[in-house]
């Protein structure tokens, strides 16, 4: 599978170009449920009636682009898993406002791990408020593990 992937060519063709833009408005009750199930206890995260109610800081990691890969990106076969998440928080994210999330491929690389050869894809999603202010960015590192027979 990934023997056929030319990582350098993919990097040259796809890195650092916004390939997806979605609009999303967070629901207050869902945002509170997200925080509670993670173990947050402060009212600013768990109580929609709190005057400072906001999304927990790691919530941007849950937002999906409408497509995971840029148009024309080769199909990658294998068991896909999350390999890591990084969230930079710049300003509080308030439920109920329209957010714009723009995604680009930030890195592609290979390595071997406990489970064999792996190809890593890092997407960066940047989240803006209606005034165009950057609220947060979320890096999602996904890894495709080659199956042993491949």
């Amino acid at each position: 599978m990934s023997d056929a992937i030319d990582v350098e060519a993919l990097r040259a063709a796809y890195l650092n170009q916004v390939f997806d833009e979605v609009e999303v408005t967070l629901d207050a009750e869902e945002t509170a449920a997200y925080a509670v199930s993670c173990g947050e206890v402060a009212a600013c995260f768990t109580d929609p009636s709190d005057p400072d109610f906001q999304a927990p800081p790691t919530l941007p990691a849950r937002l999906h682009p409408s497509r995971r890969r840029p148009k024309g990106f080769p199909k990658v076969v294998g068991l896909g898993m999350d390999a890591g998440k990084a969230v930079h928080c710049h300003r509080p994210i308030r439920p109920g406002i329209k957010l714009t999330a723009k995604t680009h491929m930030h890195d592609i690389y290979t390595k071997t791990g406990r489970s064999g050869r792996m190809v890593f894809f890092i997407n960066r999603m940047e989240i803006f408020d209606p005034d165009g202010q950057l609220l947060a960015s979320a890096d999602t590192s996904s890894v495709v593990r080659e199956r042993p027979e491949q």
Binding site: P57, T58, M81, D82, A83, G84, K85, A86, V87, H88, C89
Partner: peptide
């Protein structure tokens, strides 16, 4: 919290 980076 300004930044959280996790490796799975």
């Amino acid at each position: 919290i300004l930044y959280v980076d996790t490796v799975f």
